[in-house]
Amino acid sequence: MANWVPLWLHRLGSPPVFYRFAGAVRPWALGLALALGAVALYAGLFVAPADYQQGDAYRIIFIHVPSAWMSLFIYGAMTLAAFVGLVWRIKIAEVVAMESAPVGAAFTFITLATGSLWGKPMWGTWWTWDARLTSELVLLFIYLGIVGLYHSFEDRRQGARAACFLVLVGAVNVPIVHFSVNWWNTLHQGSTVRLVGPSHIEASMLWPLLTMMAATKLYYIASLFARVRADLIASEGGKAWVRELLTREEGAA
């Protein structure tokens, strides 16, 4: 591999460079996310045929399933960033991990809310202790714990390091929780209805789902970059590059 890749990554570790990079990428990611999301939503709600068992109620999977994927995907991305941040003490990685957590928590919450909305017509109840939903609920608590720990420190950097450590602890814990909840669910003979209903999915249902998945990924990037930029401005407030930035913006206004 050409050696400009590690060099580029190394340069990206510097806050001002990352700030500019994120600022350049963010509008594109957000625009594309909104466009793809609109297409996927239209296709999912109007183009895809109704399910022969669940009728139109199944259409919530076009929100629910991509959110559920994102809730795990973001945890994975966050774990990677936290590990890099802790081991090599790279500030940007710590910030990326910390600013991923609220976005991940939001997607987890959407997963739970849509699952609950879907459960009412299907199971006749808002909440059921289904193994997947329960695991999602525990995941939400993990996310909230990380956000809470980060904000409970006077020193932001120290808070970020402690919370990054908690991210890693959680990463070990998530599979254990999933395994134990599955075991518990079979023990207590809970509902075995699966939220992702059809086992074979039609192409006209699949492509809006995949499009929505791409849209959520792009939205994560856009949201994350906006948050990281705000965090950098706040934590690097006294530094020369931020002051330079401010004077330039004031001059432009």
Binding site: V138, G148, V181
Partner: peptide, 26 residues
Amino acid sequence: LTAGSRRSGMLLALMLLPLCVPVVIF
């Protein structure tokens, strides 16, 4: 982890819950 923070209490409970779910289950 919370030893260096200003407050713990409820935060500790929130953080401990996911870890003790498997313990309580088994």
